[in-house]
Design a protein around this nucleic acid. Structure first.
Length: 423
DNA sequence: TCTGGGGTCCTAGGACCC
DNA sequence: TCTGGGGTCCTAGGACCC
């Protein structure tokens, strides 16, 4: 049977989440900032119309914000993560096969749905709106790449009311010819420039480009993208997310940090989060990398470096990894610089099931104890809230923590912050 | 004063081996 | 003086995504 994909894409997701719990934001320009209140990562349609680009640094927008009364929010990932889960739970009721592609997007397989596909998608859309308050756009097509484009068409052309399907469409060529090639999934800035230089400006041009040229200039991935535009499916639905091959945890500081002990605190809390991610996916790492850097936007002495340590046994045991990463930090740290960011990366990640106990492990008891300790901490934190228990090395005051000056409440996950309806 | 964080895949080139 | 050929593994870097 022919494949049929639907891409469900939440409109301006973070802004929409804020609006669900704060209706005064409707029809107003709203932006949401990245971690540390750095850049704009989500914009309402009104904000987009004012010409605020994705990624604009917040501090450059002061005037515009004042002039137009733009509402500003810090990223509230606790809220967005929970809203995402609600949207995905709703989608799951409509199809057994689905891939959660990102916090605000999911691919569905509509193979075997025998009623009118567009009508079905309209039902999905209104159900999500009703149950979660989040508006979505839905694109339907025989390949993922076309489904992505279909959802963009659905979003941008109001006459489609949020749903567009390429299936059995008679005007595909003229539609593809109206889409800039850089809108195509997999074609970024560099590739679109290269394509333009060679006379390829639209999705239609890319579809009809020469295969050999494509695979030479854009690698096999570019060729696959063109194939997908032709309706030949090359990217399948990934229903079960594969375990991560690398895990990175880093943050920039709310203020410059010079002091080694403060860097260690920040590092320890990143390691702690990273180890939790390892344990959540039932895996352990063999390689730790620590990296730190100064603020590259400042005209002041710059330094960045990283250091790596290979563990003898794969581990996800927080205290051990904090210890090792601090040793790495001591090696790469140079005094006299104003640091902006520190982070940790875990690689060579092994699944727990594949870890063989070393033949002559003398410390089997210790291992068992470590595992129990981690499990206990994770369980308590799950029940009582993140960071109920944490390691002393992560610090108490954490004055280096990221800035989040415009944080909304955690409406859906904390009893104290639940919205109250006044009668 | 102020510029995010976390991933994936592919390729070229070097090291090393027979 | 001559400067093989093929294979594998690893790494760094480049491209992309949200």
């Amino acid at each position: 049977m022919k494949k049929i994909f639907a891409l469900v894409d939440c409109n301006n997701f973070y802004v929409s989440c804020e609006r669900v719990f704060n209706p005064s934001l409707l029809n107003k320009p709203v932006i949401v900032l990245s971690n540390n209140d750095g850049n704009v990562v989500a914009r309402s349609n009104e904000a987009k119309k004012m010409g605020i680009p994705f990624g604009a640094p917040y501090f450059k927008l002061n005037e515009l914000i004042k002039k137009h009364g733009i509402r500003v929010f810090s990223s509230n990932y606790t809220l967005y993560g929970d809203m995402s889960r609600r949207v995905m739970d709703t989608l799951e009721r409509f199809t057994p096969e689905m891939e959660i592609y990102s916090i605000d997007e999911a691919f569905l397989s509509l193979k075997g749905i025998d009623h009118d596909l567009t009508k079905y998608a309209i039902d999905i859309k209104s159900q999500i709106k009703q149950w979660t308050g989040i508006p979505v756009s839905i694109g339907i097509a025989p390949t993922k790449t076309l489904a992505k484009l279909a959802s963009t068409i659905a979003k941008n052309d109001r006459s489609f009311k949020g749903v567009f399907s390429f299936i059995n469409h008679t005007q595909i060529n003229s539609l593809l010819d109206r889409i800039d090639v850089k809108e195509v999934w997999g074609i970024g800035e560099k590739y679109s420039k290269k394509l333009n230089k060679n006379g390829i400006y639209t999705a239609l041009h890319l579809r009809d480009a020469d295969d050999k040229w494509l695979s030479r200039e854009l690698t096999i991935m570019g060729l696959r993208t063109a194939m997908e535009l032709r309706g030949i499916s090359c990217f399948k639905l990934e229903e079960i997310p594969p375990p991560k091959k690398g895990i990175v945890c880093s943050r920039s500081f709310g203020r410059p940090v010079e002091n080694l002990d403060e860097l260690k605190e920040a590092l320890a809390s990143h390691v702690s989060r990273g180890c939790k991610k390892l344990r959540d996916q039932k895996s352990a790492a063999l390689i730790i990398t620590v990296f730190l850097s100064t603020n590259r936007f400042k005209e002041e002495p710059q330094y960045s470096n990283n250091g790596t340590y290979h563990l003898t046994d794969p581990s996800s045991y927080t205290p051990a990894l904090i210890y090792q990463s601090c040793k790495i930090l001591e090696k790469i740290y140079r005094g006299g610089y104003r640091y902006k960011k520190i982070g940790i990366a875990f690689s060579e990640i092994i699944e727990e099931a594949d870890i063989q106990n070393p033949l002559f492990a003398l410390n089997q008891d210790n291992k068992e104890r470590s595992r129990t300790l981690m499990h206990t901490i994770d369980t308590i934190n799950k029940a009582m809230g993140k960071n109920t228990l944490h390691f002393a090395s992560e610090g108490i005051k954490k004055t280096w923590k990221m800035k989040r000056s415009f944080l909304s409440k955690r409406y859906t996950t904390h009893w104290q912050e639940i919205p109250v309806i006044k009668g």
